[in-house]
């Protein structure tokens, strides 16, 4: 049986109450919107790139504790990483929250490990991954030289 504490860990509660990087980047290179129609979660992710290094990343929006904390932790993790590194982290994170059997390598996932409990709550996986999907498709569009005006939806 799961323990509720595994989902609402202190770190998540803390990031929900005081989200990090919760601001707009006025001269962002990439701005992408994510929407989860099922729960009404909406967020905007802002990215500033220096070559292929993410020099600044932030978000704004509203949602449940899981989605806000996840976005907050994501922005914390990605600052200073290259696009390729960001993609790797996303893959690791995705496995962390979706694959119930996968081993949790805390060294590899760092603070994101706080969200591992989500894997026991299938109904909440989308909350945790909304910000990542938003960021990921924005980066992909950016790489292909497309403007990302489309809202990323979880459905």
């Amino acid at each position: 049986m799961f323990d509720l504490k595994d989902l609402y860990q202190e770190i998540i509660v803390d990031h929900n109450r005081a989200p990090r990087n919760f601001r707009e980047i006025l001269d962002a290179d990439i701005k992408a919107e994510g929407y989860n129609p099922l729960c009404g979660d909406k967020l905007t992710v802002y990215l500033k790139l220096d070559g292929d290094v993410i020099s600044d990343v932030s978000f704004q929006g509203e949602g449940c504790a899981i989605s806000v904390a996840s976005a907050s932790l994501m922005t914390d993790q990605l600052k200073g990483k290259t696009e390729a590194e960001a993609e790797k982290i996303f893959e690791t994170f995705h496995e962390l929250v979706t694959d119930r059997e996968s081993e949790i390598d805390l060294e590899k996932v760092g603070k994101l490990g706080a969200l591992a409990g989500v894997r026991e709550f299938p109904a909440r996986v989308k909350c945790a991954t909304l910000c990542w999907h938003t960021l990921n498709s924005a980066l992909e569009d950016h790489d292909q030289g497309k403007d990302s005006h489309e809202t990323i939806s979880t459905e």
């Binding site: 729960c39 009404g40 949602g63 449940c64 109904a123």
Partner: peptide, 29 residues
């Protein structure tokens, strides 16, 4: 200060089944 979805998940662990969301009535929300 608490999003309804967090409420719903935590209540479920207490055996309490309620509905959270827009209840198929988005204009009401």
């Amino acid at each position: 200060g608490i999003h309804p979805h967090d409420l719903g998940t935590i209540l479920d662990t207490e055996g309490v089944a309620i509905r959270t969301g827009h209840h198929c009535a988005m204009p009401v929300m």
